[in-house]
Every structure is written in structure tokens, then in C-alpha cells.
Design a protein around this nucleic acid. Structure first.
Length: 298
DNA sequence: ACCCAGGCGGGCG
DNA sequence: CGCCCGCATGGG
């Protein structure tokens, strides 16, 4: 009896390499838009709902204890946690690839343990359509409103959560109702994209596609352009050869690598491809978060 | 009051 | 192709 209890406990633990929850979830990756995070004497706790279930992790040092409400067996849940939090990424190897200069070296040093998370494609798509001409705090507010209004109720460990609303449920909501959640002019985009994703485009099909084909497919969606597509590819599919260029990225790259000279989005894509190639998605996240924290170029 | 925010679609030359 | 414009809305 005692032995089996202990075995169960062991199965719910994962030991990781460097993994910083504050840097990972504070760096504007989509699931942070509606997560509870707390820290007390070395114990870090994070709980959030996806479209498929509630995930809760407790981290102490290099050990993580997790629970996941989805109907996986232990092995399935463990695999899912590792995938979602990027725990199998070899950060030392990635750092060697993207540490091309003193700016990157400082960013890596300051943000050690920041990982790229892999989230549900639909959730990522909706969050990043909302991100256009918006700010992170307000995106969190809007997604919180959408979840509260349209998310399916879900009981987990004695608490009541709402899951991230499905594409088909968002597709059935009227524009005025969506706007009452604060979506603003983006309401028509998310309704249209939701309709496409629940009837036409199969987002799961993009897992097997290469970067260029998957990006082209995403850009067929209303409200998805170059930047939003790249965000979906990095944070929803872990395609690390994507390089999202927002106002921050453009400003920081121009400041650090082009002596402040203005460059086009296309030129910056070419630069990132040559400099960081298959790991440019990781480089992007370190540049973005470090640049924002330190107001580089502002 | 004024300004900005992890851009995009549409219209124009 | 590149450029310019309008856009809903909460927070600084």
C-alpha cells in the first residue's frame, strides 16, 4: 500500500534543467494571459485552464510536481506537461546556437531558464488575433472576459474553472456580444477565424506541415498576417524557425544590429534567418523579453 | 486631455 | 511590391 502511494507520487514528479517560471510566463507567451502564479519560500505555483483541461504545477528547485485534469493516464499527462513547457528543450545547446554576440549573451544571462511553451493552436490563434494594436494587459483582460462568458465549466481539485472557449462556440457568438468582452474592432476577425477553424481549416493538420506551408495556411484566416502567423507557429506549434516581428522586435533589432537605421520587416526576416536559422524562434523570445524589460530603443 | 499598445485589411500609386 | 490610413478600448 505504502509502496504504491510512493510510486504514484514519483510518477507525478519531473526533474528539469534550468526552468524559470517568471521569465517563461512573464514574457508574453499566450497561456500567461489567464494564469494564476504565486511564489512563497521557494515554492512556485502555477495553475491555468487550457481548452482541454486545467494544468497545475508546483516547482521547487529543479523538481516539478504536476497535475492535469484531462483524462490522460499518468504517462500521457507527463508527456503532455513536458511538451507544453518545453522541458525537453536542451537549453545549453540552444544557447550555444543563439549566443551570437554580446547583446544575446546578456539577454541569455539575464533570462536564464526562459523556455518557449507549446500551447493549443486554437487558443494561440485567438490570443494573437486579439494582440494586434493592443497591449498585453488588455489582451489578458479580454481573454478573461471571453473565458468567463463562453468557457465550459470544469471542476478540478475542488475548484471550479472555465476552459478556453472552443472555435465553434466563438463562431456562434454575435459581434455585439464579442465586443462587450472588449474585443473592439477585432470582433469580426475572431468570429470569422473561429468559423473557419471549426468548419474549414483543420488546425491539427498544420503540425505536419513545414514553416512556409503552415504560415500560408494560417494567413488565410481573417485577422492573421505575417506577425500573428509567426506567433501562432512559435507558441502554438513550436516551429522555432518562425521569427515574429512586432513593434518591439523591429525597434530592438534596428537599434542593436543596424545602428538605429530603419529596416523593413522583410529585411529583418532575412537577417534573423541568416543569423539564427532554425533557432530564430528562441532568439526572438530572448530579444523580445529582454528588450521590453530594459526598454531597448525607447 | 493625450498617447500608446506583441498589426491587419483595404485602398492607392 | 511599398506606403498610408483607420481602427475599439483600457491604462499610463
Amino acid at each position: 500500500m505504502k509502496a504504491s502511494t510512493q510510486l504514484l507520487t514519483e510518477e507525478k514528479m519531473i526533474s528539469t534543467g534550468e526552468f524559470s517560471l517568471p521569465h517563461t510566463f512573464g514574457s508574453g507567451q499566450p497561456l500567461t494571459f489567464h494564469a494564476d502564479y504565486s511564489e512563497s519560500n521557494g515554492n512556485e505555483q502555477l495553475t491555468y485552464a487550457t481548452g482541454k483541461g486545467v494544468i497545475s504545477i508546483m516547482k521547487n528547485g529543479s523538481r516539478i510536481r504536476y497535475s492535469y485534469s484531462n483524462s490522460y493516464n499518468n504517462a500521457g499527462a507527463r508527456k503532455e506537461i513536458i511538451r507544453r513547457f518545453g522541458l525537453s528543450d536542451d537549453l545549453d545547446s540552444i544557447y550555444r546556437d543563439i549566443n551570437t554576440d554580446s547583446f544575446m549573451e546578456t539577454a541569455i544571462k539575464d533570462l536564464k531558464g526562459m523556455r518557449i511553451t507549446e500551447n493549443d493552436p486554437w487558443e494561440t490563434t485567438l490570443c494573437f488575433i486579439l494582440s494586434q494594436f493592443n497591449n498585453i494587459k488588455r489582451i489578458r483582460l479580454i481573454t478573461k472576459n471571453l473565458i468567463a462568458r463562453f468557457g465550459e465549466v470544469h471542476e478540478f481539485e475542488g475548484r471550479s474553472f472555465r476552459l478556453f472557449p472552443s472555435a465553434s462556440s466563438i463562431a456562434s457568438v454575435s459581434i455585439p456580444e464579442l465586443m462587450s468582452c472588449g474585443t473592439g474592432f477585432r470582433a469580426k476577425y475572431i468570429k470569422s477565424a473561429a468559423a473557419d477553424c471549426s468548419t474549414g481549416l483543420d488546425l491539427d493538420r498544420l503540425y505536419g506541415m513545414d514553416y512556409a506551408d503552415a504560415k500560408a495556411a494560417l494567413m488565410e484566416l481573417d485577422g492573421v498576417g505575417d506577425k500573428v502567423a509567426d506567433c501562432i507557429l512559435v507558441f502554438g506549434y513550436k516551429k522555432l524557425d518562425a521569427f515574429p516581428i512586432d513593434t518591439w522586435m523591429k525597434r530592438v533589432v534596428e537599434e542593436v544590429y543596424f545602428k538605429g537605421r530603419r529596416k523593413s520587416i522583410k529585411q529583418i526576416h532575412g537577417f534573423a534567418e541568416r543569423r539564427w536559422g532554425p533557432m530564430q524562434g528562441y532568439a526572438q523570445q530572448y530579444i523580445f523579453h529582454y528588450g521590453r524589460i530594459n526598454k531597448v530603443g525607447k
